[in-house]
Design a binder for these strands. Structure first.
Length: 581
DNA sequence: CGAGCCCGCGCG
DNA sequence: AAAGCGCGCGGGCTCG
């Protein structure tokens, strides 16, 4: 049973029920076609949940927060905007009407920036997210698009894989909205102490904290330049050169190699200046609301299918400040990450049983060493990364032939993906997300490079661009399939947590309490490509850890069936994210 | 003064 | 150009 949800006004939605085949529900059904206020919609959704309903809407980030604010969670949805993007580009649906139609509004990014859901006044914008349905009955457009998507899947070469992908992408959108709503528990007091210990007390706006200012003074002294601004790479570069330091860039890893009295204070300055500008007091004041960090997650925000975020740099939380991420009293974190996820994905994608065997019940890189392919774990890792990223030189390049002898199937797959990209062809993930085609500039450069009488510069340029795109497609199949695995993993975690009975926490409703429907139940609060954090009442932490582990195994089976590949986790129960590794 | 670029660095 | 993939963000800086 599907229920289509269309926003007709900023505070109204229209619901239309369809049967499982996408046909109209029996007209006799009460509420088969109704328009409701947001409040009535939330009540209706609560009543209909649990009956195998899938909610179909244009944009999860537009609709779902209003349900969450009413303490209503839903199990399943179909996010038309995200699914359209997949089906539009997938090689598996290339013959469909949907893929061959002229570009329309479904191919554009969401017209209106979406409202924040933290429940904070700071971000309370009343954005209607109004949909342009000029000349149509509200909802017709949604219905037409949904039916086109169902048809594209049904007519594809791998409907089962695409159905799984669309379901995973959509539940990812639910999870993203829920994580933004719930927020990551954050102790500003601890954060402030960390900053003060490193930088000195908070300074007035426009001023450097004392530790930074004194390091800047030492840098000027050592360079013999009383005015140089270490925040300006060009100025700093000139000052370094004048002082006889032979560098062409001011990157820290380049400076590290040098010995000069300015290097030590300069490297310390760079580290601290980064902390101050990226995650300092201003960041804290901007992004931490009611003891929670509420980043906006963007499912499908990366072409490979990885998520992106907007605001606060959520996917770059430096280790330095993870100590501020502390579970509520009476609660714990279950922090889990998938060990060597991408090489395991490659082993399974290519059905390379030898590589999969190397990772069975052990660290995959250690397994490669144990198989005698290379001498050290570090070599195994750099060689694998080289295979997946397309390294050609250096240590990684030198080790590749040994990897290719031991794991010919895996390496043949990455090579063929690279060759496809070099030709301008597309490649696809396990579940059917396809890479974009290179742009017109790329095509032009290739054409010019292969013309008779093309100059060597044009040829070099064409080859270089082809190589770049080949490395992108080479990595796309692995990164993209890993993203699919991670979506399935999270979806299974969410399902398991939902089923876990939730006794009220003794602290719930007192000092701190997770927002809305999460006040007393374990819930996902963070996701970082191959790592998740679940915030859970302490008594349930062990159950949660078990669920997270089982979910990883299930995700592997969903993608790769019976192929014997393991997806082990490192999983810990902690009070602070800083203790996770 | 804002828009958009580069640089550098954080994360996987 | 870190030896090779994918991001977001802040500061400096240039251009209009």
């Amino acid at each position: 049973m599907y229920i289509l949800v269309t926003r007709t006004r900023p505070d109204r939605v229209r619901l239309r029920e369809l049967d499982a085949d996408g046909g109209p529900a029996e007209p006799a059904d009460a509420g088969a076609d109704v328009t409701l206020s947001d409040a009535a919609f939330a009540a209706h959704a609560r009543a209909r949940e649990g009956g195998g309903v899938r909610w179909v809407w244009e944009d999860t980030a537009d609709i779902y927060p209003l349900l969450l604010r009413a303490h209503v969670r839903v199990q399943r949805c179909h996010d038309l905007r995200l699914c359209h993007a997949i089906l539009r580009n997938s090689a598996l649906t290339g013959a469909s009407v949907l893929a061959n139609a002229a570009a329309g509004r479904w191919d554009a990014p969401p017209a209106v920036p979406r409202p924040e859901t933290a429940g904070s006044t700071l971000f309370d914008m009343d954005l209607g997210g109004a949909v342009d349905t000029a000349g149509e009955t509200p909802g017709e457009d949604i219905l037409t698009e949904f039916l086109a998507q169902l048809a594209a899947v049904a007519g594809s070469t791998e409907p089962g894989r695409l159905r799984l992908l669309l379901a995973a992408e959509s539940v990812g959108a639910l999870i993203a909205a829920e994580m933004q709503f719930a927020g990551l528990p954050w102790r500003t007091g601890i954060h402030d102490s960390l900053l003060t210990a490193e930088l000195g007390p908070r300074a007035a706006p426009g001023q450097r904290p004392v530790r930074l200012e004194s390091l800047a003074g030492r840098i000027r002294e050592e360079l013999g330049d009383p005015t140089v601004n270490p925040d300006s790479p060009p100025e700093l570069l000139r000052a370094l050169n004048r002082a006889g330091v032979q560098v062409t860039t001011t990157r820290a890893w380049e400076l590290e190699k040098l010995s000069h009295p300015v290097i030590e204070p300069l490297l310390r300055y760079k580290k601290l200046a980064r902390l101050q500008s990226a995650n300092g007091w201003y960041w804290m004041q901007t992004w931490i609301v009611d003891d929670r960090f509420h980043p906006e997650y963007l499912p499908g925000g990366v072409v490979t299918g990885r998520w992106a975020t907007r605001g606060g740099g959520a996917l770059q939380l430096p280790r330095q400040i993870r100590g501020a991420v502390v579970a509520d009293p009476g609660w714990r974190f279950v922090v889990a990450d998938a060990a060597q996820l991408e090489p395991r994905i490659l082993a399974a994608l290519s059905a390379d049983t030898a590589m999969a065997a190397a990772g069975r019940g052990t660290d995959l890189y250690a397994g490669i060493v144990a198989s005698g392919v290379v001498e050290t774990r570090a070599h195994a890792k750099v060689a694998m990364l080289g295979a997946m990223y397309g390294a050609t030189s250096g240590e990684s390049g030198r080790l590749l032939p040994r990897l290719a002898r031991a794991y010919p199937r895996a390496l043949a797959l990455t090579e063929s993906a690279a060759r496809a990209g070099e030709r301008g062809d597309i490649v696809s993930t396990r579940l059917g997300r396809s890479s974009p085609r290179p742009g017109p500039d790329w095509q032009d450069d290739q054409a010019r490079g292969s013309e008779g009488g093309a100059g060597s510069a044009a040829q070099r340029r064409a080859r270089s661009q082809a190589g770049d795109w080949g490395r992108f497609t080479r990595n796309f199949i692995v990164q993209g399939t890993a993203a699919e695995w991670a979506l399935c993993w999270m979806a299974e975690i969410r399902k398991g947590l939902w089923a876990l009975s939730a006794p009220a926490s003794p602290e719930a409703g007192t000092t701190r309490s997770a927002p809305g429907p999460f006040a007393s139940v374990p819930h996902l609060v963070f996701f970082l490509h191959d790592e998740v954090i679940v915030h859970t009442p302490a008594a349930l932490a062990d159950d949660v850890a078990r669920i997270v582990g089982e979910a990883a195994a299930t995700a592997g089976r969903l993608l790769f069936g019976d192929f014997p590949v393991d997806f082990p986790l490192t999983c810990v129960v902690v009070d602070s994210y800083a203790d996770a590794k």
